[in-house]
């Protein structure tokens, strides 16, 4: 297996931590939305971090949408010893998508062939922590799960998450990022379905129509609305407020939708925080890469 030994030396480690704390160029190119389309291999090469770990970090931190994850990045990187095997660390972390008692998908799959095929994949993920599993074996395991899913009812998101874990992270490190995206999407879907105030399809459609109608009317009333024109944007917002005030039914739906959005975001944030804490614990216990 390709071995990446973290940092190489203490000075490199501290330089990376300092860049991230200051939201410097490494932070901007790695831990933000730039990670989606950027080539992250220079991060791996410069800092000795396995490409799967490099893909995992921005996904777990929310791609820099807020600064909330800055302390998390600092803590994980500080906890990682010089020479740590971050490939094994990434694999151990991804196992949580199956095993975590609160958020893992193991308990979501019904007893039967889908669960058995999922367990077979997780056995391979476990094995891959210490020894490389070849491409054919991963592919056969994915095919078995896909076949089982075709014959048996199972939650699609949970199956997709397990399928996202079934890749050789040496050749397909982006699987770490994809697994996190599928997992966070599932947490969001679960939170939306959990209530207490779920909205019907008709209510969602009515809200969408009202939003579009008001948006078009407000945009027409503020013809100079353009990116960067803060004063025009304020007038636009005021116009939107006036239009909502004149539409009590739509405004009530919007209030419910906004409150629901806050609840969903809170649940996703709680999941993210819990998973970040798990990665931090794994980082503290990380083994050193073999020479």
């Amino acid at each position: 297996m390709t071995r990446f030994a973290a940092y190489g030396d203490e000075a490199t480690k501290q330089a990376l931590i300092a860049d991230i704390a200051a939201k410097g160029p490494v932070y901007s190119g790695w831990l933000t939305n730039a990670a989606f389309e950027g080539d992250l291999s220079p991060i791996s090469q410069t800092y000795g971090l396995h490409p799967a770990f490099v893909r995992l970090m921005p996904a777990l931190g929310g791609f820099g949408a807020t600064d909330a994850s800055l302390p998390f990045y600092g803590s994980v990187l500080e906890s990682l010893p010089v020479g740590a095997d971050t490939g094994a660390l990434a694999r151990r972390f991804l196992l949580l998508a199956w095993t975590d008692p609160a958020h893992g998908v193991a308990q979501r799959l019904p007893l039967g062939s889908v669960l058995a095929a999922g367990e077979a994949i997780i056995d391979l993920v476990r094995a891959s922590v210490t020894a490389r599993v070849d491409k054919k074996t991963w592919r056969a395991a994915r095919a078995a799960l896909a076949k089982a899913r075709a014959c048996e009812q199972a939650p699609e998101a949970a199956v997709d998450l397990v399928l996202s874990l079934a890749w050789d992270l040496e050749e397909a490190p982006g699987a770490a990022q994809d697994a996190m995206l599928v997992w966070s999407s599932q947490v969001m879907t679960d939170a939306a379905a959990a209530g207490p105030d779920t909205m019907t399809e008709e209510e969602n459609q009515a809200l969408f129509t009202a939003m579009r109608t008001h948006h078009e009317a407000a945009a027409a009333a503020v013809p100079d609305l353009k990116p960067g024109n803060a004063e025009a944007y304020e007038r636009f917002q005021a116009e939107m407020g006036r239009l909502w005030d004149g539409d009590p039914a739509g405004k009530a739906l919007k209030a419910r939708s906004d409150a629901r959005g806050v609840r969903i975001n809170a649940k996703v944030a709680a999941w993210r925080e819990a998973m970040q804490a798990q990665l931090l614990e794994l980082a503290k216990a990380a083994s050193l890469a073999a020479a």
Binding site: R142, L161, V162, L163, D178, L181
Partner: peptide, 9 residues
């Protein structure tokens, strides 16, 4: 947006 699992399937 397609998941890796769906893509492989």
């Amino acid at each position: 947006l397609v998941s890796r699992g769906k893509l492989a399937s």
